[in-house]
Amino acid sequence: MTSLTIPGPLAAAPGSGWRKAKDRIATTVIYGSFLLALVPLVWLLWTVLSRGLHAITSDGWFTGSQRGITYRDGGGGALHAIVGTVEQVALCTVISVPIALLVAIYLVEYGRGPLARATTFMVDILTGIPSIVAALFIYAVFVTSFSGQRAGWLVSLALVMLMIPVVVRTTEEMLRLVPNELREASYALGVPKWKTIVKIVLPTAMSGIMTGIVLGVARVAGETAPLLVLVGYSPNDNSNLFSGPQGSLPGMIKDQFGNLGSTTILRGGHKVSVHYAADRMWGAALTLILLVMALNLLARLIASRSKVSS
């Protein structure tokens, strides 16, 4: 689109050769930067897919745990980790969504004055809070101050701090897209404000809100820092969020990462080099990526059914 060449007297002004060259260089650099960004994405996804596929297609990956399996043993599953991640994220979602929706409603439908400005600012700050700081805060409150034990639910609490800003931001944006005409139409029918919000505004923005929630879930599902601080990793099945170490997909990746490298074992009288831990690590990584990508895809799908256009 930039290579429109104009022939004849219109073309060559003095210095135009260099200008054109600069233009061409810029175009190349700009296209190149996009291609450059594709390199790590494709490379990373390919690595995880090619190295993880073996593990997740093996028997018992989705039904077994890592109980009693050392880095010298093959096999074992990731069910304990999937269960832990799903539970922790589910509890986090149950806590985050109502708070986040209310905050967004406040900011769009009610908020004026200093509290609204402070809230907006704090949502921005929460968006940028490092996950390790959120984890330390929960630790300082529940473990140091109230002498609680590390457990899965504390991870959920730390994740709440990371999920709320994501859901608030998208919900806020969606609520602002709901035309004021609909609110006015509702008021003009004699519908009180709260019912206008609950029955007209929220349903109209619902698909966008759902998208925000799903993106929030995807964001926290892969969080690792809170796991390190707030719950021990367990290779066993533990579906109890409130007691004991618990497995999780990021935790499993970290655990297997600690035993990378090849191991020599005796098989049928021969020394064989194997990479059980690496296989499982990439398997867990692939499982996590599939989970997160599925959530992202779901978010796209919901967003495409939106009643309000962005």
Binding site: I99, L102, V103, I105, Y106, L107, E109, Y110, G111, L115, A116, A118, T119, M122, V123, I125, L126, I129, V133, A134, F137, V141, M161, I164, K193, W194, I197, V198
Partner: peptide, 19 residues
């Protein structure tokens, strides 16, 4: 609803303070 939603906003402000 006004109370709950502004309460949620205040909670976030408080949360950062608590951190």
């Amino acid at each position: 609803l006004a109370g709950l939603s502004s309460g949620a906003g205040a909670f976030l402000v408080l949360l950062i303070g608590l951190v």
